[in-house]
Structure formats: structure tokens, C-alpha cells
Design a protein around this nucleic acid. Structure first.
Lengths: 296, 296
DNA sequence: AGCATTTTCGAACATGATTTCCAATTTCCA
DNA sequence: TGGAAATTGGAAATCATGTTCGAAAATGCT
């Protein structure tokens, strides 16, 4: 392989070299790898011989994919102990125009494995409706996938304890949180836990919450952009000295500073439609926890 | 905070503004966050107020750290729905010269968490609440997992077509199906699709459905043991010649023989608590399909 | 309601990153 | 061993990205 191209003379030499290399990869049955996994498959097949520096690159890429994804070409080159142009040449062997395109394989791989998106990959689907459905399923899976090692089990346990002690639980949530609160209220009721679903029928939400007392608790659910009446309702409960626990999707929720305990549950969306899968799972676990604790 | 700097005059004004902001953060005991975790701590302290766009940035950074780490400022800005300069301003509030420096926090965080370098995983501790939560997550995932190759896409497409033609959609569901129908009604409304959520407030469900006509449609959701008022409501709609589509979890539902089209969505449970994840995903896909079809 | 201040957006400019190209060096083959 | 071909390194050119700055818009206060 020659990187040189001096004139029409060099141009014809380069074409010959490109054809030679092109034939070599095509003859081996490989096309331009579209994913990190495909790239790894080619590299590990053992059928591609690399000269010294390119081999060095291959080893580095294999062993340090996150550095490759996150660094600039200059940084990666330095870490790998080669020149930036060597990285470009490496990428071009695989049919990429330059290193940045090639680096996208590593970025996509990293994104796909990160909790935000884990499970989001589903097969492409020619039917538009099915495509959307798969996307929605993926978003739901991604949301559930965030419930992992970093889940704040300590706050969760404390929420369970607090709610278990409450005389009456006011369940508050609007708009997108409302399906979650209706399910919470239903399951709490079915389990014999006294609760009030604050549903604002007849615009009476403020009046309902106006009856909350010190021995009661609020279980609030709220998602960004936090522009429902839920913050106002919770503020009333706060003034009346009720205990407050909140499920919300970021620290910026106005409910956070009103709450004794809060728990972060983030939902993914697909094309603007939001999952509720994780919130519902957490909600059910809360209800179950409260019941378990009260029957100890 | 002013980003403006026009001359020595502006320079002194800018210094004053910078000092003001600097004093504000310094007075709160915060120095320039050196790690992603420190940044999160500052953001979640609740003591920093953000105007509209900066708050939007904060929420995005909080919820999408991998996108922030792996994207260019232009990409991140687009995803967050702000201008690139807004991201720069955000970074400067925290003492960074520009966004790229600031982005390093996210890159370092991501590198630190990647398997190449990940430390020991947290040892699982026995915790009943966590056990239940993981069970609930598993049930939700199992429910979503059923949406696979055997999904009845034909009936789904026909349901979409039927609903898209309806003049008014009556959304009917009770008890465990109610969270699904409230979400359906909300998203239909948000998408400009006329619908009535039959919620039986004031025990008026039968009266609401009593108004349904031939050009209207019912979207019913019903789960076993089918002992809610939903079958009665749907029977009224059937008598009045409305078109009826149903999401239910078996062929034994009394709604099946009243429906023009029906779709089976089965939810798993854990210890008696039922997932709703699959029904919600299918519901959102229905709403999206109706909207798409009406805009063709 | 009016005005001062703050925030925002986006065009212009600056900077850094990426790619190209070629001379020097290394490798391979007869 | 000598010569052809391949590989490499690095400077220059090009491109893309990041930052600055100011007018317009929004917000807050009296």
C-alpha cells in the first residue's frame, strides 16, 4: 500500500496499489465493517497481515477502545506511539475516508453499551409501525436497564420506611406521571394501604392536599419539564409539615428541595414518546416494600 | 452574568460580573469541579439557580452523560435544544474556559467506568427490596420481550387504520388498564387526535359511551380477570354500531367477540404485581401510527 | 408600565483537528 | 546485495469545531 501520489504517474501506481489492496480484502470476503463488532471480527480473523506500525495500531485499538472513542486523533496517535497519518492509513484500509469516520465505530459501540441506551438496539424494520414499536420497546428496555448497580437502594429503603409509617399516603402526579400514580394508588388500595389519589377532578387537588397532616405522607411523581401543578401541590404539603418522598428524573426538579427523600428514575423516549416502564417497576417495588414492612 | 466584552469599559464590567458570579460560587464553598461527581454534587446541591436555557442544559447533562462525552459541541447543543454558545456559557459558570475543557469531565467519567478500567463491581448485598425491584424489572423485560417476530403486525396495522378514520376515539379501560388508558388519552390529545377518556368520574361512564356513534371508535384496554365495567361499556358501544378495537391479554376476554379487531398483549407479573410495560409500548406505537396515517 | 439587567441566539472569527502529500526510511524479493 | 516497492513520519494545507461578541429578546424590579 502506497500513500504516495505525485502526479498522473503516481496516480496510476496508486490505483494499482489500491486495487491490489482492495482485492486482497474483497478476496477475503470482507466488506467495510459497519460496527465495532464487525471490525473486531476482521482483526481477530488472523487473515490480515499488518506491517509494523499498523499492527501497533491494531493492538492499541483492540486493547483501548474507550481511549479511541474519546480521544482526538492526535491523542490516540500519541498513546499508540504512531503518527496521526498512520491512523488515517489504517482507517483507509477498511474503506473509511479518514480516521474520524472510523472512530465513529468506537463511539457508537460505547454509546450503545452505556446505561442510557442499553437495550435500545433492535433490528431495523421495513414496516413503519413495527419500526416505531421496536423503538418504543427499546426505549422501555433502556429505561429498565438504568436500574442497575448505581441504583440508590439506600434512599429507596428509607422511602419504604417513611411511607410505611404514614397514616395516609397522598399520591400526587400529573400529565405523564398520572398513569404511574393511578397504578400506585390502585395497588396500594388493593394491598390495604390507605391512600388518596390526588387527581384534580373538579379542580379540587389543592383542597385535597389542604387536608394533609403531619402524620401523613406524600408520594409524588414528577418528570421534566416539571411544569404541572404537582410542585404547587407538594409545596402545600410541605407547609403543612407532611413527610414527602418523590420519584423524579433529575436533581433539577422543584420537588427535590421540598422532599425528605427523593429517588431518580430516568425514562428514555423514542421519537418524543416517553417510556414509563422503569417508574412503574420502581413504584410497584415501593408498594410491595411498604406492605412487607407493615406486616413485619 | 454577562458574556459581553466590548472594550476596556466592557472589560471592567465583565470583571465585575465575573467577580460577582465568582463570589457567588466561592461564597457557597464551591471550587471549579474537577470530576464529574463533583459537578453532580454542585448541581444537586440545589443552591444554584439557573435561567431557562441553562437549566435545560443542566437537565440534559444530567440525563445524557454519554452523549455529552462523545459528541461535538454542535451535536450536544442540538440534542439539548440550545445554542452552542449556551453550552459555553454553562461551562464558564463553573470556571471552565470553554465547553471542550468542561466536556473532559464527562470523558474522564466515561473512561473511568469502562470495562478496560472498571474497578471491582459492587458486591450484591442481600436486600429484600432490591430483590423485589429486580424481579419487577425482570417481569417488565419479559413482557417487552414478547413483542418479537410473532407479534401480530397485521392486526396492529388494521387497528391503526381503523382508529385513524374515526371521528372521535373513546378510550376505555378500568382498574389495572386505567394507567394505560390515561397515557393513551394524554398522548392522543398531545398529538391533536380527538378522544374521550372514559374515566367514570361521577359514575358517568355509561352516559359518556351512550353518546358514541357510527363514525366513532372505541380503543379498549382490558386485562384478566375482565371483571371491571369495561365489558359493559364496550357492549353499549357495540350496540350503537361504533367500531371497536381492543388490546387485551387473551382470547377469553369478553371484549374479543365485541371487537372488530383485537390485539393480544400479555404482561408478566412478579409476586402478584403486574407489569404494564408492553401495553404502554404498544399503546404509544398505536398513537404514533394513527398520527402518521392522518398526516399522509 | 417603563426601565434596567440578564439571558439568548447566531454570525463572524479564531483555533485546533484532520487530512494530504512527499521525502526519507524500511522491507521484500530476485 | 541491489533495486523496487512498501511503509513511515511529519510539514503544510484544508476543514471542522469551538469561542467570542453584540443585537435582540426575555426577565425582574420599582
Amino acid at each position: 500500500m502506497s500513500g504516495a501520489q505525485k502526479s498522473s504517474e503516481r496516480s496510476s501506481i496508486d490505483e494499482a496499489a489500491t486495487r491490489k489492496r482492495g482485492r486482497s480484502l474483497a478476496a477475503l470476503g470482507y466488506t467495510k465493517p459497519q460496527t465495532y463488532e464487525e471490525l473486531r471480527a476482521v482483526l481477530s480473523s488472523g487473515t490480515v497481515h499488518f506491517p509494523k506500525r499498523l499492527r501497533q495500531v491494531a493492538i492499541f485499538l483492540w486493547q483501548h477502545p474507550s481511549d479511541v472513542a474519546l480521544g482526538t486523533i492526535a491523542q490516540v496517535a500519541e498513546q499508540a506511539g504512531v503518527q496521526p497519518s498512520t491512523l488515517v492509513r489504517f482507517a483507509q484500509i477498511f474503506g473509511y475516508a479518514g480516521f474520524s469516520d472510523f472512530q465513529g465505530l468506537f463511539k457508537d459501540h460505547m454509546k450503545g453499551s452505556w446505561p442510557e441506551r442499553a437495550g435500545a438496539e433492535r433490528t431495523a424494520e421495513p414496516n413503519a409501525n413495527l419500526h416505531f414499536l421496536n423503538g418504543m420497546v427499546g426505549a422501555s428496555q433502556a429505561s429498565l436497564g438504568r436500574i442497575d448497580n448505581s441504583f440508590d437502594i439506600e434512599s429507596f429503603d428509607r422511602m419504604v420506611a417513611l411511607l410505611a409509617e404514614a397514616e395516609l399516603i397522598y399520591v400526587i402526579g400529573s400529565k405523564r406521571a398520572f398513569p404511574v400514580t393511578t397504578y400506585l394508588s390502585l395497588t396500594l388500595s388493593q394491598q390495604g394501604v390507605r391512600n388518596v389519589l390526588v387527581d384534580n377532578v373538579g379542580s379540587t387537588a389543592l383542597d385535597q392536599v389542604g387536608c394533609i397532616g403531619k402524620r401523613d405522607a406524600v408520594l409524588a411523581v414528577s418528570f421534566s419539564p416539571y411544569n404541572s401543578i404537582t410542585p404547587d401541590l407538594v409545596a402545600v404539603a410541605h407547609e403543612r409539615k407532611a413527610r414527602i418522598v418523590t420519584i423524579t428524573d433529575s436533581t433539577f426538579s422543584p420537588l427535590v428541595k421540598l422532599s425528605d427523600i427523593w429517588l431518580e428514575v430516568v425514562e428514555s423516549d423514542f421519537a418524543g414518546f416517553r417510556s414509563l416502564a422503569a417508574s412503574l417497576a420502581v413504584g410497584m417495588a415501593l408498594v410491595h416494600g411498604v406492605v412487607a414492612r407493615r406486616t413485619e
